[in-house]
């Protein structure tokens, strides 16, 4: 069970990073503005920071590999896919 518990913090970390990436996504904000042009101020991040955040999603693979937690690697990759998709499906704040 330990290797499962060790994977959970990484999955939570990925969920948080994905939420930030989703909320600061310029294309998503552009699409949402069509429905609510005068909506409240939006969180913006520079392209470099966004790229850094996206790359940080790969970091958990390193400790998981060092711990020989191969099941954790697969679960993290699977959870990343599912959380990413579900977060993308969330309605934009303005719509």
């Amino acid at each position: 069970m330990n290797h499962l518990i060790m994977t959970l913090p990484f999955i939570l970390f990925a969920g948080m990073i994905l939420l930030i990436l989703m909320n600061t996504d310029p294309r998503r904000q552009q699409a949402a503005r069509k429905f609510a042009p005068k909506s409240s101020t939006r969180l913006t991040l520079s392209s470099a920071i966004r790229k850094g955040l996206a790359l940080s999603l790969l970091l958990p693979f390193i400790p998981l590999a060092l711990m020989n937690n191969y099941a954790g690697i697969l679960m993290y990759a699977g959870a990343l896919t599912v959380i990413g998709w579900l977060i993308a499906e969330l309605p934009s704040k303005a719509s």
């Binding site: 990436l21 989703m22 996504d25 294309r27 998503r28 699409a31 069509k34 429905f35 990759a77 699977g78 896919t81 599912v82 990413g84 998709w85 977060i87 993308a88 499906e89 719509s95």
Partner: peptide, 30 residues
Amino acid sequence: TDIFTIRKQRDGQALKRDSHTVAGTWSIPF
């Protein structure tokens, strides 16, 4: 660049093309 973008139609429904693309993009490796 489109990985988080699901545009809406006038009735508020998500565009099917975008839903298809976004879900497809996320699940491609698996």
